[in-house]
């Protein structure tokens, strides 16, 4: 299949690559660009393990073609920490024990990152709905909610 040239910004860096038109963004990120933080957990865009930020929106990278990211801006878990400093959502997940096996975590973090920009001061109910596109099998979500609350508080006081 003829390959297409695409370029986009990945975690602040310009990247260029050749992809088949049918290739999914998640596969290009993981297999071509070596960013294996985002995961694949299902085939139906339910689990959210592949959630990344594309042009200021949370997207499920298993349901986006890589060509759709052309000229776009992509943020993955690898780009969350800045200058060796964890992002408040990362800190929150660690402090509040918001992760166990870690497989859903990158997607959760990226969703929390975007959600807290959409709603900087959410109620518990709003967090539950705001994070409901991401499945976790380990934590029962209770500590994930606390982690998002931790991050919200920290970001507000910053």
């Amino acid at each position: 299949m003829a390959k297409q040239h695409i370029s986009f910004t990945l975690n602040g860096q310009k990247v260029e690559t050749l992809v088949e038109p049918r290739e999914l963004l998640i596969h290009v990120l993981r297999e071509q660009l070596g960013q294996t933080g985002s995961h694949i957990g299902c085939d139906t865009s339910h689990c959210g393990a592949c959630t990344v930020d594309l042009n200021g929106k949370s997207v499920k990278a298993c349901t986006i073609l890589a060509v759709q990211a052309n000229d776009g801006e992509v943020l993955t878990v690898e780009g969350l920490a800045k200058d060796g400093e964890l992002h408040p959502v990362q800190e929150g997940f660690m402090q509040e024990h918001g992760l166990q096996c870690g497989f859903c975590t990158p997607g959760m973090l990226l969703r929390a990152y975007r959600f807290l920009q959409e709603n900087p001061n959410p109620t518990e109910e709003e967090i539950r709905w705001g994070m409901s596109g991401n499945l976790c099998r380990c934590t029962g979500y209770q500590n994930i909610i606390k982690a998002v609350q931790y991050a919200a508080k920290k970001m507000q006081s910053a």
Binding site: Q35, T36, G37, S38, H39, T76, V77, E78, L80, A81, L86, Q90, F93, M94, L99, G102, F103, T105, P106, L109
Partner: peptide, 11 residues
């Protein structure tokens, strides 16, 4: 946690 929250897990 530090490796999982920074995308450095190894599955």
């Amino acid at each position: 946690d530090p490796r999982f929250i920074q995308g450095k897990g190894n599955y």
